[in-house]
């Protein structure tokens, strides 16, 4: 490496920007830059590039719940999991899930009543459930639902009966989503309803609804589990969650619309 003020070279400037110089050499480079404003400007630009690049990808440093699936060797159930993950990814690129869940909140396994959700295991199981439903059902091409939209009344009656709740199937056509249908799903070990919607572009939303035995209330809450977002809320005996791989604003619009219609029901 070069030494002395007069011998600061290109490599020193890079190392300076990348924080790879020791204190002594850094001071020398800084002194040199003061005497060379043109170079200093260039170096400042690099510095800014570094910051912007780091910021752009800082959010990608995340663990995902299905990461362990990546580690399953071929041939075991993992091949299936890997295959599913690939399919899901294809689905994810174009699909959004709207989950409205509800169920055994009163067990304390999911959400503490009326308070900010606690971190840790309680929420983890909820997020896991929402994620599983998303992965499994939005990637289903042939049989995404048990009962199709053509039998909407039957669907509402059937799922409502299992939930012991007068289920109203939200109409999301104002947001461009048409009902695909619904299915019965377990949510925290109890019957829950999963409704699925799709827009003309093929993006899917599903909605899960379940019971909240605690009869508590919460406001809208956002849970981000990249690449999915979930809006959830508890309204008396019923809890809802909407999950989607769409912008928070778009998802919020869906959640608002659902909430509005549920309230009218």
């Amino acid at each position: 490496m070069n030494e002395g003020k007069a011998t600061v070279g290109e490599n020193d400037l890079h190392a300076y920007v990348d924080g790879l110089l020791d204190d002594g050499r850094r001071a020398e480079v800084e002194a040199w830059l003061e005497a060379h404003p043109q170079e200093a400007e260039r170096v400042a630009g690099w510095w800014s590039q570094n910051e912007r690049i780091r910021d752009a990808f800082a959010g990608d440093y995340i663990a995902r719940i299905d990461d362990p699936d990546l580690l399953r060797p071929d041939g075991s159930p993992s091949a299936v999991a890997g295959h599913r993950a690939r399919i899901a990814r294809i689905g994810l690129a174009a699909a959004a899930t709207l989950l409205i869940f509800a169920a055994g909140f009163g067990t304390g396994r999911m959400l503490p009543a009326g308070t900010v959700p606690a971190a840790g295991a309680s929420d983890t199981s909820l997020a896991a459930e929402a994620r599983s439903a998303f992965l499994i059902y939005t990637s289903e091409v042939r049989h995404p639902v048990e009962v199709g939209a053509d039998q909407q009344e039957h669907l509402a009656a059937w799922l409502g009966k299992r939930l012991d709740y007068r289920l109203r199937v939200p109409d999301l056509s104002s947001l461009g989503y048409a009902l695909v249908g619904g299915r019965l799903v377990p949510v925290a070990g109890k019957p829950g309803a999963l409704l699925m919607y799709q827009n003309p572009a093929g993006q899917r939303l599903t909605m899960m609804i379940g019971r909240n035995d605690e009869n508590s209330e919460t406001s809208f809450r956002l849970d981000v589990q990249a690449p999915l977002r979930t809006f959830y809320w508890i309204d008396g005996p019923i809890g809802y969650a909407v999950t989607g791989e769409i912008s928070a604003d778009a998802l919020r619009a869906v959640a608002d619309e659902c909430y509005r219609q549920m309230e009218e029901a």
Binding site: R54, A58, G59, D60, Y61, I62, A63, R64, I65, D67, P68, V116, P117, A118, A119, G120, A121, D123, T124, A127, A128, R221, L222, D223, V224, Q225, A226
Partner: peptide, 22 residues
């Protein structure tokens, strides 16, 4: 800096827990 803003959006930092969970 290793953790993205999503972790905060979670409000719980539970993502790391997920990875180790299973």
């Amino acid at each position: 800096m290793p953790h993205g803003p999503e972790d905060d959006a979670d409000g719980s930092g539970r993502r790391a827990g997920h990875a180790r969970q299973a």
